[in-house]
Amino acid sequence: MRLYADNARCSGCSACLAACSYHLFGQITTKRAALRVIPHFPVPGGYTVQVCTQCGECAAGCPTDAIVQNDLGAYHVVPELCTLCMACVDACPEGVVFFREDVPHTWECDLCGECIQVCGMDVLRLAE
């Protein structure tokens, strides 16, 4: 199972980012999400939503085996094992393994589906 995004429907409201950040870190912000919304303004307009495809490249590249699959099959980072070596960040073809200076580990989508709940435009869905 993975997350899919229909770019053409996205209105760029960032609710998915806030819901994701709240789920992963308990913080309402747009800066700690595990997906990305890229605006294309002023020309041509519209948005691209980058989501994890669960390809597993991040886990394959992790030298400390810190990336494992959860019950839903999502590759996710075990914080205690992460050394912030950035191998997963470099390995991710979608650019959706995240890091910040003030977070001691990288993170990615755990397929919780909170982003889908708050999207009013049905951009996001979970499917095989």
């Binding site: 209105s11 409201c13 609710a15």
Partner: peptide
């Protein structure tokens, strides 16, 4: 309309990006 365009956390965007 090229794209719908919403404000922060809006599930019903009224913004219509137009060309």
């Amino acid at each position: 309309v090229v794209s719908d365009k919403g404000c922060y956390c809006c599930p019903s965007p009224c913004g219509k990006y137009t060309y």
